[in-house]
Write a protein that binds this DNA or RNA. Structure first.
Lengths: 226, 226
DNA sequence: TATGAATGATAGTAACACTATCTTTGCAAA
DNA sequence: TTTGCAAAGATAGTGTTACTATCATTCATA
């Protein structure tokens, strides 16, 4: 059984849908590699075009600019992760077990999903850690939000917020706790590897410790609200 | 009694110390205003030079590039905030009261400190919310860290981590909890104002709610570890 | 009065972020 | 089979950004 996983993306995220052509798929594939290699600041459409074997103008037909491309990649990632969350928590009754699964999915390195041929999720995960918040930390955030560019992120946050409420219906800050665990899953990972004195995981650099920290954070918050 | 507050900055943060000259002080003053107005991405040394009435070359004598200037501003802010924390918690015996004071200082809009004539802390606080993490979310983070450019941030985190341990000596994640409340104080504020569905504070947009959320987060974590 | 540091003034370069236009390719409807 | 049309390739060009270099001026101090 060979399954292809296609994620339907908001049309405002691109000028021409990259999933609908070979060139588009190459743009996604190589932009992920280049951003991971040199960082988003050093990433340019010219370098991307060279890596692909096309021209700058070719890239501009798909994405307005490199910031839009970053938003696209992050939106793709959050959509894919929400699918993972839905899939992996399916049939789990106990909301506590569900929430633990979510924390693990957030804070643990993902493996490349072979059903998405031109996206390497494990590299994309690394990009989200370092570059993810740059997608919305801009002066344009409100306009971009009006175009629903951050919907996948907000949807995932809402899903997690609802799981929190399932665990503890009277907890007062489900959405803020959800965005906190999402952000901290990635920030604590970045800190652990780059500024380790900001964490308690510097010695082992073990993602499992981030999971335990987040579980402790979440379930003591929910536990004490009962 | 007129008091001047001078913060001694790491010499690697600049090429020439901006606090030692009129031009340097103008660079700080106007860069804060311009970054706040247009965002860090749109901010250039040319525009800054025009605003000040000098030339690009003049700015480059003080800072290698705009990213270094951002690191300088954030380092300055964290140093100033650590001073605030030390000052405001001085003579408080109860570690719980101390930690609550810290959360309030982190999550509440600051007022301009008139003892620092060329830095407007309330605007700088806004810059930290939107641009702060861009200082370290780069490929250069390890090198910059070796030059101790992030020391003020790490020091503040250590101070807060120690307060956490004072409250609850056996708590296992004091540093991670400290970096979590620092980051979340700013992120929840950004979300509240720009992507409100990621928080539970969208209706009132009241910073006091962020304070309550963080207090709940921290003290349930510490409470349940006793 | 001489010295030197800070600043001002001007110029220049390579890369970046686009925009425009024209040609070629390939497929699909007439 | 022809015609048409969209995607992609090729090339060029523009304004801005991110610097670097050089030389002249000011001004305090030895």
């Amino acid at each position: 059984m060979e399954i292809q996983l296609q994620i339907k993306m908001n049309e405002k995220l691109f000028l021409r849908d990259p999933e609908q052509s070979e060139l588009g798929k190459k743009i996604i594939l190589h932009s992920i590699q280049l951003i991971h290699l040199n960082g988003f600041e050093a990433f340019t459409f010219k370098k991307l075009a060279e890596a692909i074997g096309t021209t700058e103008a070719g890239i501009y037909r798909y994405f307005e600019n490199k910031h839009r491309l970053l938003i696209y990649l992050t939106a793709w990632y959050w959509s894919w992760l929400e699918y993972q969350v839905t899939f992996q928590t399916n049939n789990i009754k106990d909301p506590v077990v569900k929430l633990k699964m979510v924390i693990k999915l957030l804070a643990t390195t993902v493996e490349d999903d072979i059903r998405t041929s031109y996206v390497d999720e494990s590299i994309l995960h690394q990009i989200i850690i370092t570059e993810g918040s740059k997608a919305y930390l801009t002066k344009r955030v409100s306009e971009d939000n009006k175009d629903h560019l951050f919907k996948p992120y907000k949807d995932l946050c809402a899903v997690i917020g609802n799981m929190i409420l399932e665990c503890s219906p009277q907890y007062k800050y489900p959405k803020s706790l959800a965005s906190t665990i999402i952000e901290m899953a990635y920030f604590q990972n970045f800190f652990m590897n780059n500024l380790p004195s900001l964490t308690d995981f510097g010695e082992n650099k073990d993602e499992a410790e981030i999971v335990r920290f987040l579980e402790d954070l979440v379930f003591s918050s929910l536990g004490s609200s009962q």
